[in-house]
Simulated scan of single mutants.
Amino acid sequence: MKRTLTQLADGRELFYYDRQDGADRGAVDERELPPRPQASELRYDPLTEEWIAIAGHRQGRTFMPPADECPLCPSAPGRRSEIPASSYEVVVFENRFPSFSTRLGEHGPAGGLSEVRPAAGRCEVVCFTSDHGSSFSRLSPEQVELVMEAWIDRTTELSAIPGVEQVFCFENRGAEIGITLTHPHGQIYAYPYVTPRTKLTLAAAGRHHARTGRNLFADVLAAEREAGVRVVAANEHWTAFVPAAARWPYEVHVYPHRRVPDLAGLDAAERAAFGPLYTEVLRRLDGLFGVPMPYVAAWHQAPVRTGRELAYAHLELFSIRRSADKLKYLAGSESAMGAFVNDVLPEEAARRLREVITE
């Protein structure tokens, strides 16, 4: 893999990732861009002991432009985008409208009991392909490997930023999920704290280890592989299954068979084996109702400094679509109390996904 670093017109960093060394990445961003915003602010909620990012500048971010104005497509004569080159394989660049940033400013007190501090960190955009009309499910195994190399490279570098505590690679797909750009892409957040979900799962893993001496995630994977009823797909290095207590109508977790704390711990064989299995799962989701499935795909990696001996890198994929013409809305119980009610039996969801005929 070849990585090339360049800068956009406002000083943001952009990285090209190429399989071959010969790609010309000398194109210059000639746009006139406004100054970059300062970091958002973090406000502490004493009732939940969670940090909330307040990012007012994101209200003005680009929203669903037509295809010929897509900022994630390669640049062309008369149309300059976020990517200066006329073609690319995989690109990562700093988000123009970040929730977290290293450009720290001054933030006054919020009043009350809420502590306020800068939302230090970084947000990046990952373009999976230059093909505007494609999707992750259509990427070749080689392209998925290149995306994974980009995830690993960025996780390693972002983890080294002072104050960053956790790196999160993810994809939002579909208008129903709330995307603002339709080009196949994901994001990476470098948080200045350990996220609430990770705190919960690592605390559970710690209690499990104290009771049994074993890793909780490894035991969950082993139990699902043995039961088999919720397994959707598997190969030598990975298993995809619907969790027994799935929160979402269609939810699939993808685990490597060997425990590693983060993506960088995967060996060459494991990295190569991920793409064929994962894209199969995505095609099964798309084939379930005959329409593109909206989803969130979330990589769970160990925090930078804590819980690494308990963590188990894996991907959690879920959709809010519960039938061809119905969505799962987070209403009173889920939104107000955090208490989920799932309308689809996990075993039935797994069976339906297994029965989808994929190309």
Rank of each mutant, 00 (worst) to 15 (best):
T4I: 04
L5A: 13
R12N: 11
L14C: 03
F15Q: 02
Q20G: 11
Q20H: 12
D21M: 07
V28P: 04
E30Q: 15
L33C: 10
L33S: 06
P34C: 07
A39L: 08
D45I: 02
A53N: 13
A53G: 11
Q59G: 12
G60T: 12
A67W: 09
P71M: 07
G78L: 03
E82W: 01
P84H: 02
E94N: 01
N95I: 07
T102M: 07
G105A: 11
G108W: 05
P109A: 15
L113P: 03
R117K: 14
A120Q: 04
G121I: 06
E124Y: 11
S134T: 04
V144I: 02
V147Q: 11
E149K: 00
W151G: 01
T156E: 04
S159F: 00
G163P: 05
E165C: 02
V167H: 00
V167G: 00
F168H: 09
F168D: 03
C169Q: 09
E171F: 00
G174L: 00
G178V: 00
T182Y: 12
H185E: 11
V194W: 13
P196I: 06
R197L: 10
L200T: 10
A205E: 12
H208D: 06
N215E: 10
A218T: 15
L221T: 07
V229A: 14
V231I: 07
V231E: 02
A233D: 15
N235I: 09
N235V: 12
P243G: 06
P249I: 06
P256E: 08
L263N: 04
A272H: 13
P276Q: 13
Y278N: 03
D286N: 15
G287T: 15
L288W: 15
V291S: 10
P292N: 12
W299F: 10
W299E: 11
A302H: 03
P303I: 10
L310M: 09
A311R: 05
A311D: 13
L317M: 08
I320K: 02
R322Y: 00
L327A: 02
L327M: 12
L327K: 01
G332V: 10
G338K: 07
A339Y: 12
N342A: 06
D343W: 12
L345M: 13
P346Q: 01
A349P: 01
R351G: 03
R352W: 00
E359S: 14
